[in-house]
């Protein structure tokens, strides 16, 4: 573990990512200190470009974009991490069990996965939000529901391949328990794939949220980056900064998450560096 930590901190891009991510977390934490009150409040003239009266300018109703971005960091991080966490736990459990045990369990679990996966995911998320309503908890739920199947399939594929490896076969013939084989021998070997996919999944969750917001399906009482982009979209060509500011925020966050993911990947799988 210590080695892994050292490998991680030696990985420069990963450190950069971590620093960025920490900055986003801090932004989320200090939002209400820096900008007390409602981020939806109208504070100035609309359509002011950045670096005028307001550091990041104002949007079409004259709301301070800097305040919106700070508050948005909260919502966006919450949605990204919460949805991914739920989806990963569900996906790894279902995919792992299916891939490891195969046979009837596999058929059943994969049927379940297929069920959720054949439904066009974005459309299904829209359907869920349309039916359940667009409060933030329901949006997280909807994103998690549509996000886990790819993880399950990926983990299943890895487990299936792993199940037939010599060392697993050896463990089985030695009479080792299934739980132990899965947790100690197979899971660590699939971790890199899970981490890589998981890191992209956070990003995907953030992007799904922005897609839903773009279609007007966000929580109207909560400020999020997706919401700012969605509302600024129609003025993309006349007031570029309204989309660009939260867009860059999403970009940096997604990039940071990915770099950290890569760093973890390399750190947890030292053999990968030998190519």
């Amino acid at each position: 573990m210590r080695d892994a930590f050292l490998r991680f901190v030696r990985h420069k891009p990963a450190l950069v990512g971590l620093v960025l991510l920490v900055m986003v977390v801090i932004a989320a934490a200090v939002a209400s200190l820096l900008y007390p009150g409602d981020p939806f409040r109208i504070v100035g003239k609309p359509f002011q470009p950045p670096l005028t009266d307001f550091p990041l300018g104002t949007d079409m109703l004259g709301r301070d974009l800097a305040a919106a971005v700070f508050y948005g960091a909260r919502t966006t991080l919450l949605i990204g991490f919460a949805a991914t966490l739920i989806a990963t736990v569900v996906g790894v459990t279902i995919g792992g069990l299916a891939g490891y045990f195969g046979g009837r369990a596999d058929a059943l679990l994969m049927r379940l996965t297929e069920l959720f996966q054949t439904i066009p995911f974005f459309l299904f998320a829209i359907l869920l939000v349309a039916v359940l309503g667009s409060s933030i908890g329901k949006i997280i739920f909807a994103i998690a529901v549509v996000s886990w199947p790819p993880m399950a399939r990926l983990v299943r594929g890895e487990f299936m391949a792993m199940r037939n490896r010599e060392f697993v076969q050896a463990c089985v013939s030695m009479g080792m328990g299934h739980a132990r084989i899965i947790v100690v021998h197979i899971l660590p070997n699939t971790l890199s794939a899970i981490v890589v996919t998981g890191s992209l999944m956070i990003a995907t969750a953030i992007l799904i949220e922005s897609g839903l917001s773009f279609l007007g399906l966000s929580d109207p009482n909560v400020m999020s980056w997706g919401y700012i982009i969605g509302s600024g979209r129609s003025v993309l060509r006349t007031a570029w900064w309204i989309c660009a500011v939260p867009g860059v925020a999403i970009l940096l966050t997604v990039m940071a998450i990915n770099l950290v993911g890569d760093g973890l990947n390399d750190a947890l799988n030292p053999r990968l560096r030998q190519l």
Binding site: L200, A203, L207, S210, F214, I229, L236, G247, V254, M255
Partner: peptide, 10 residues
């Protein structure tokens, strides 16, 4: 990553 994180509509 840049391509991925850019909102599709944008």
């Amino acid at each position: 990553v840049l391509a991925y994180a850019t909102p599709v509509f944008w």
